[in-house]
């Protein structure tokens, strides 16, 4: 599996008549881990949905092209909530998005094992804890062998310990499989720990306020003073707290 290059140039989006993004330029190279941070309601999730082609921009270009020269880039989405279909067992929740071939169940079983859910294939989603359900959602994304993995605050609804474990999991899978990762988060610590590069969205309608490169070797240490310094840079670029967008009608949470 290889990554894809994601490129948004001068993208503008309005939702229900309200401008949300204005002239946003964004790039993620093949296999790169890019984070997008910004105050809540600024349009981070909208940016991710534009890449996934769930939202059509009113202006600008969006291209997602696989590094290996293939024509169709596959994107996979992990939402803030697991969004497992409650009427399907865990394995079927994963297999339902896999390419339709006789191998699909075996493939689903393999990714479930990769996310640490071996033995839970026949469980119903209601029987999983929050962290396990989110890992199942991750497995569902991986089974499509995506070129680009889009992560919409996927760790925000789980407890702190589970969050750390999930972050390590995603990092491991990313290093292993080489997909491009775009992570939307409001957690600056998370962004500097995980990403190669951080886009900071701000204003209303939102534009890219700053771009911060995280040129630190991996594996990183969470207590690394360089991470703390970068964290201060990102927070400074975000401007004064509280982190809400003035005058914004708020991004519709979908």
């Amino acid at each position: 599996m290889t990554g894809a290059a994601v490129r948004l140039s001068r993208v503008s989006v309005s939702l229900s008549g309200h401008p949300v993004l204005r002239n946003v330029n964004f790039e993620a190279g093949p296999g790169e881990f890019v984070a997008v941070v910004g105050p809540s309601g600024v349009g981070k999730s909208t940016l991710l949905r534009v890449i996934a082609r769930l939202i059509q921009p009113e202006a600008g270009d969006v291209t997602v092209s696989p590094a290996n020269g293939g024509r169709q880039a596959r994107t996979a989405f992990v939402f803030q909530e697991p969004r497992l279909l409650p009427w399907l067992r865990v394995i079927d929740n994963v297999a339902i998005v896999a390419p339709a071939d006789p191998d699909r169940l075996a493939r689903a079983r393999r990714v479930l094992t990769a996310v640490g859910l071996a033995g839970w294939e026949r469980a119903w989603p209601r029987q999983l804890s929050g962290g396990m359900a989110q890992r199942a959602a991750l497995a569902r994304a991986l089974v499509t062998e995506p070129h680009v993995l889009l992560l919409d605050e996927p760790f925000s609804a789980v407890d702190a310990l589970t969050r750390i474990r999930l972050q390590e999991h995603v990092l491991g899978l990313w290093a292993d499989r080489g997909f491009t990762a775009v992570l939307v988060t409001h957690d600056v610590d998370e962004a500097v720990y995980l990403a190669d590069r951080i886009y900071i969205l701000n204003g209303w309608p939102a534009t890219v306020a700053a771009e911060v490169k995280v040129a630190l070797p991996r594996p990183r240490l969470r207590e690394d003073p360089d991470l703390a310094r970068l964290r201060r840079d990102v927070l400074a670029a975000l401007g004064p707290l509280p982190l809400t967008v003035e005058g914004s009608p708020g991004e519709p949470k979908i």
Binding site: A52, L54, A76, F77, F79, E81, R83, L85, V97, R140, T144, I254
Partner: peptide, 10 residues
């Protein structure tokens, strides 16, 4: 509706 969006995303 979130499940419908999920279906669209995949």
């Amino acid at each position: 509706r979130k499940l419908i969006e999920l279906a669209g995303a995949y």
